[in-house]
Simulated assay, not measured.
Amino acid sequence: MAGLLRRWAFTLPLLAFIVVVFDMPVLRMLAISFESDAGPLGAYHELLTSPAYLRVMLGTFKVALATALICGVLGYVLAYWIYSLISARLRMAALALVGLSFWISILVRTYAWIVVLGNNGIVNRFLLEHGFIASPLPLIYNDLGVLVGTVNLLLPLVVLPLYAAMSGIDRRLTQAARSLGAKDLRVFWQVFFPLTLPALLAGCMLIFILTLGFLVTPAILGGNRVPMIATVLDSLINVLSDWQLAAALSSVLLLVTLMLYLIYKQLTARTGAGASA
């Protein structure tokens, strides 16, 4: 009994911290979303029947999905390239270059894309000077600019976990498959890729969720022409002071995140069962 009390004595402060710092704000947000003057579901009704808000949510989901897919493909290729490097020094150098992006401010990295993709940026100046185009291409202040920025910022979050998952695979499994006559492509798709698929799915889900709440990058590279949920929330709270609608929008975002997590758990359970079979 004394041992149980000691364990709870160490656990209760952490549990209280989690409840106060994480759970209570979420519960308060949910409560505010039902305090609309139009009734308990008034904010949700306005949110789900307004074409403007529906357009913002669909646009945000589209950008988040595209970012997750692009990061998944590019991240897997880059992680596999780093994993395939023979020299340990080259692998460490490549990982250091990937991790170096975390040391640079998100704000600086976002503004740097204006220098690269702006109307008078590096890319447009090169294309204009060599006669490939007659006028600057609209590479920023649109969905493309936001997508480039989000992929650039979030790609390392896929590369590093994927490389860790690849490094944890027993090389004897692929060697055994080759000894049984399997070609390299078949070894990759039937042995190597299924073992790294859970890490890939986890990375893509993380990228999707983070993109849903991005504020700085859409505001700068979107130029107020690509409204996303985070920018709309900023306007609802700081400009319109419509806390009920902002809380309802946040609650919908939370619900979508929970649904994605459940889908991810189902997919990982199936892939794990398939790999073990």
Rank of each mutant, 00 (worst) to 15 (best):
S167D: 12
D170S: 10
A177D: 02
A112N: 00
V116L: 13
M228H: 03
V151T: 02
L157S: 10
T231N: 13
P198L: 07
I140L: 01
S179Q: 06
F126G: 08
G145D: 05
E129Q: 14
G213K: 10
L100E: 01
L154K: 07
V226Q: 08
E129P: 02
R172I: 01
R178M: 09
L127E: 00
T217S: 15
V151H: 00
P198C: 11
N119T: 10
P218S: 13
L162P: 04
T196D: 09
L154H: 09
L200K: 10
A202K: 08
R225N: 14
L157F: 15
L180E: 04
P136F: 09
V216M: 13
N120C: 02
F126K: 04
V226A: 08
L100K: 06
N119E: 12
M205V: 11
N224Q: 12
A176N: 08
N224S: 11
S101P: 01
F132Y: 12
I104Y: 08
F192G: 00
V216G: 12
R172H: 09
V98W: 01
A199C: 11
G222N: 05
T231P: 13
I114W: 00
L221G: 04
V108M: 10
D143N: 13
L206V: 12
Y111I: 02
I209Y: 13
A182T: 01
L180H: 08
T231D: 09
F192I: 05
L185C: 09
F193M: 13
V191T: 09
F188S: 04
N224R: 07
Q175P: 02
V116W: 01
L195W: 03
H130W: 14
M166H: 10
V232G: 07
W113P: 00
A219G: 08
L139V: 06
N142W: 06
L221K: 07
A219W: 06
S135H: 14
R225I: 04
L139I: 13
Q190D: 09
L212P: 06
K183P: 07
G213A: 15
G121A: 05
T174Y: 08
P194S: 11
F102S: 09
W189N: 00
V108R: 00
G181W: 00
A230N: 09
L221P: 03
P161Q: 08
G118F: 03
Y111E: 07
M166G: 10
A177S: 15
W103A: 15
A177Y: 01
L100P: 05
G118L: 05
A182R: 03
V158A: 10
L137W: 01
I169W: 00
I220Q: 12
V123H: 02
G213I: 01
L212A: 10
V226T: 11
A164V: 08
C204M: 15
L137P: 00
F188M: 04
V216T: 08
F208T: 06
G131R: 07
A165D: 08
M228D: 05
G181F: 10
I122Y: 07
K183W: 11
T110P: 04
G99H: 02
L215Q: 09
C204S: 13
R172P: 02
Y141M: 05
G168N: 13
T217C: 14
L160N: 03
T110Q: 07
V146M: 12
F126L: 15
R225Q: 15
A134P: 03
G145T: 00
L221T: 00
L212Q: 08
A176M: 14
A164I: 06
P227Y: 11
T217I: 15
N120E: 13
V151S: 02
L160K: 04
L212E: 00
